[in-house]
Structures are given as structure tokens and as C-alpha cells.
Amino acid sequence: MSNEEMFKELSDAIVSCKKDAVIATVEKARDEGIPPAEIIEKGLAAGMNEVGVLFERGKLFLPHVMMAAGAMEAGVALLEKDMPKDAASKKLGIIVNGTVEGDVHDIGKSIVSTMLQSSGFEVHDIGRDVPLQDFIDKAKETSANMIGMSALMTTTLPGQKDVIEMLKEQGMRDDIKVMVGGAPATEAWANKIGADCYAENASEAVAKAKELLL
């Protein structure tokens, strides 16, 4: 079997959301001599991307996403001993995610956190109605690479701008990326407030996080 065919089989196993299938396919790929890093990146991670797309298209649902993520973790755990220490469990980046102060919406934000986590990021979801300084404090505490902020009301949207201003005042703006989202947020708004990116939905959040951090 060619490597490309093997990567497809790995990806399909993830999309099946079945842990046993993923474990069996990872073992098969390992036996065929495919480097562990490629098994993860070109096989399993590609499968998780596909899971994200299928979720946005209504073909898979949140429990499936979690089962796929669990299966991926199991697959990665199998490869740990074949990789340099900590390489297998290395996260793509650290992200602090939350809904800004005054805003109690969190369904969309939670889905974004789940998808980012499933895609290999270390996500610290700090909830909703988050005091603005808490985004920065948590980012410092976790050495985060990115802050993600959601707002679902026009009245709370300015909180996203305020956090960016606070990052500048505290000398942290150049060291951390900022992603914004939520119903009233737009690309134009993100540009206006100096955010690094805007994401329309959870899949886009994953894609843009990867673009900015990898």
C-alpha cells in the first residue's frame, strides 16, 4: 500500500469515530514503516480536519467529534514511544478561549474550544462573562500563543477591542495572536480593532489558528 493510501485509511478511521479502528490502522501504518510524525499529521490530523468539516455540514454531531478526538488521542498514545520525548503529545499551540465580559452566550464558543482541542491545540476555555483582564492573566499563566474571544451581542463586542488595547498597554501584544468571533463580529471589525484574524465558524477557527500558529 502506498503512503498516500495509508494516510487515507488513517483519516477514514478517524472519521469513523471508532477507537478500535484507529488503533488498528495506526498499528498497520507503523508496521509499514511510516514515520510517526507523518502518521499523526497526514493521517490522523487530516481525519480530524475532515471531522470538523462534516460537523459544520451537519453530517457528524458533537458526540462524534469527541469520539473522534478520543480515538485520535488513543492513536497518538500508541506512537509516543516511537517519538522523541514529548513529541507525540506536543500540542500545536496553546489557546485561551472565552466569551467576553457581560456576555453569557457560550454554545458557539464551546464548540470552537472543542474543535480546537480536537485538532491538537491545548485549549484553556475560561468560560463566559469573562472579566477582560482574565484573558490576559490566563494567557500569561499558560504561556498561551493565542487568545480567542467570542461576543454575541453588539453591546459586548467592544470588549474584544479593549482586550487588545490592554495587551498593548501591558507590552504583550507582539507576543500573542488574537482571534475574534461571534455573531456581530466581522472581518472588518477584526481589522478595525487590530485582531490577527476573524473566524466565521468553528472550522474556520481551526484553519486560521493553524495558519497563524504553525
Binding site: P63, M66, S110, S113
Partner: peptide, 15 residues
């Protein structure tokens, strides 16, 4: 919150 339960892989509890 089922979002928190899901992230902890407690799927049935979330449901």
C-alpha cells in the same frame, strides 16, 4: 454545562 462535560469526554453525562 454539557460543553464542559463533552470536553472531558463525558459524552453520556453531557447528553
Amino acid at each position: 454545562n454539557p460543553g464542559d462535560l463533552m470536553k472531558a469526554f463525558k459524552i453520556r453525562e453531557a447528553q
